[in-house]
C-alpha cells in the first residue's frame, strides 16, 4: 500500500510521519500525532468540529488529506495555551460560559482565533458570519458570541506579542 512521507509543523513542533494518501488530516492529527483535542463531529464537511488552522486559515480537517498539508503549519486547540496561560479566546469561553457539552468548542475557538487575527474588533454580525460553519447544538450561540467579544476586548487591551501564537501565517 502506498505510503507517503510528510512533514507537518503542528503547534510549533515538527513531525515527520508516513501516511496513506487517503488519510484525512483530522485522523493524522488525532490518531498519528495523538492530539485528540480536535474533534470529529459529522465527518461530512458540515459541522466544523474538526476546524484547525492550516497556514493560518481555519479549515475543516475532515475535508483535507494529510498529504496535502505536507510542509504546512497546523494550529490545533492544544496550541492555544501558552506557559499555563489560557489564550484569550479560551479564557472568553470560560468566563462567558461559551459552551455546554463542549464538543464544538475546539473548532469554534479555532475559528474565533482566526477571526480575531484578521479583525481585532468584530461586530456581532461579523462574529456570527465567521462562525456560521461551526455548528453548536447546545448553546444557541449567544454565549459563544459573548465569549468571542470577551476575547476581542482582552486581546485589544494586551500587548500583541503576548498573545501571539504559533502556527499562524
Amino acid at each position: 500500500m502506498e505510503r507517503v512521507p510528510i512533514q507537518l509543523t503542528v503547534n510549533g513542533q515538527s513531525y515527520q510521519v508516513e501516511v496513506e494518501p487517503r488519510m484525512l488530516l483530522v485522523h493524522c492529527i488525532r490518531d498519528v500525532l495523538n492530539l485528540t483535542g480536535t474533534h470529529i463531529g459529522c465527518d461530512t464537511t458540515s459541522c466544523g468540529a474538526c476546524t484547525v488552522l492550516w497556514n493560518g486559515r481555519p479549515v475543516k480537517s475532515c475535508t483535507v488529506f494529510a498529504v496535502q498539508a505536507d510542509g504546512g503549519e497546523i494550529l490545533t486547540v492544544e496550541g492555544l495555551e501558552r506557559d499555563g496561560q489560557l489564550h484569550p479566546v479560551q479564557e472568553g469561553f470560560w468566563e462567558e460560559h461559551g459552551l455546554q457539552c463542549g464538543f464544538c468548542t475546539p473548532g469554534m475557538m479555532m475559528t474565533a482565533v482566526a477571526l480575531l487575527q484578521e479583525n481585532a474588533d468584530p461586530s456581532e454580525e461579523e462574529i456570527r458570519k465567521a462562525i456560521s460553519g461551526n455548528l453548536c447544538r447546545c448553546t444557541g450561540y449567544v454565549n459563544i458570541v459573548k465569549a468571542i467579544q470577551y476575547a476581542a476586548r482582552k486581546m485589544r487591551e494586551t500587548v500583541p506579542a503576548a498573545v501571539g501564537i504559533a502556527g499562524g501565517e
Binding site: 466544523g48 479549515v59 458570519k129 456560521s132
Partner: peptide
C-alpha cells in the same frame, strides 16, 4: 457558497 471554512479552500 457553503460556509466560511469551506470557502477558505
Amino acid at each position: 457558497i457553503a460556509d466560511p471554512l469551506v470557502r477558505n479552500l
